[in-house]
Nucleic acid binder design. Structure first.
Lengths: 210, 210
DNA sequence: TTCAGAATACCACTTTCGCGGTATTGGGTG
DNA sequence: CACCCAATACCGCGAAAGTGGTATTCTGAA
């Protein structure tokens, strides 16, 4: 019996998955939390084989939770769960040691297979994203893969733009020159192949950059 | 036994909810589709008491599906399901005759209660949004409720802005004057209290306007 | 039928953006 | 050590956005 911990802020989803598995599936959802901070505690107290974790959560997101776990020495295999097909998330998850990646529009059979593979410390990638992943590791610079060439500073700038700040306001907030901000903006727009800041924000949200 | 049809493009969620209900709950998920266009057909062929429908779906969204159903003379009670707490969606759903509204982070108990109420043609509102709804019907013009004062044309303009079009390009696409587009943009920014088009797009996406 | 609001259109003005360069510094890697 | 790249900074220009006001037409609701 594979014991699974679900980390997801959508109760209905978590409860649904929990009721989905029968004893004959050899998979059991033993625990559930909506807060990434509670995961280390749960892992210490209970016997857990696989963590099924949503990427986007309000308190601590999936990637942050993974970093927390690695820092505390936990190595329970993690299957990441997401709504979107963002290569940035996939890459981030893999970098931090996620064992697999599955979309929320997968079927029960796919989820079962994914949990079983991850439990054996093998990798699982949902078919919808596997092509992107392969392309990425082949070094193909597709449109999507260029997203994660953004630096931390650039992402910071994007967040300010999304809040309606102009270059001058951003410069004052970050204690840098307005010229610098403009250079960052130009680099960002160029990297993401967008023509306006509005389009930039849409892309950034679609790809979970911000 | 309340027979429920789920309309949702997230298989895992739908399968999860399906397995969640036991015979003793007196609720059964009898059908599932990811395409709103198939709903009329399913309603004609099978006995269905309640429709549990996601608001945002790729092919035909929740509101559009509801309009389709009403036009074809169906009056099966509908419980709308969403990730976000958007007063615009709530209002749109109520206008078109939805019986209730529930968030995806609700619990099983809440969903059960919601389905039971909707089946009796009573209304159900998830606690997290009920206050907003009450405020709205009290006529309180909160910040949020101003979102749905946007006209169809204005929303159309926003979508073009999000694609990176400038005013001239939008004007050419819609066969109107660039002056008109600029007026629309000004009205939109004023209504939503945003200073830049980038902030506008973020807000529009956050509130599911586009 | 009157009246509000949506969609359309125009003028004028200031500010900001987007784009073309170029260049220095500092941190990390082979 | 040499090299790369991110972050920083500056100049200038044309295009677009953002802001102000005004006005006509049309539809739908009171």
């Amino acid at each position: 019996m594979i014991k699974v911990l679900i980390v997801d802020d959508h109760h209905l989803f978590a409860e649904g998955v929990k009721s989905m598995f029968r004893p004959e599936d050899d998979i059991e959802i033993t625990h559930h939390t909506i807060n990434g901070n509670e995961v280390p505690h749960l892992l210490s107290k209970h016997e857990i084989d696989v963590i099924l974790m949503d990427v986007s959560m309000p308190i601590l997101n999936g990637i942050e939770t993974m970093i927390l776990l690695k820092n505390e020495g936990h190595d329970t295999p993690i299957l990441m769960l997401t709504m979107h097909q963002s290569i940035k998330q996939v890459k981030g998850a893999l970098r931090k040691g996620a064992q697999g990646y599955i979309l929320k529009d997968a079927s029960k059979a796919e989820l079962k297979q994914a949990i079983e593979l991850v439990n054996k410390r093998e990798n699982y990638f949902h078919p919808k994203i596997s092509n992107q992943v392969f392309d990425y590791f082949r070094g193909k610079n597709s449109l999507v893969s260029e997203l994660d060439t953004l630096s931390e500073r650039e992402i910071e700038i994007i967040k300010y733009i999304a809040e309606g700040c102009n270059s001058k306001a951003i410069a004052e907030s970050l204690f840098i020159s307005e010229h610098t901000v403009k250079t960052h903006r130009r680099n960002i727009m160029h990297k993401l192949h967008v023509k306006t800041s509005a389009e930039l924000i849409k892309l950034a949200i679609d790809k979970d950059i911000i």
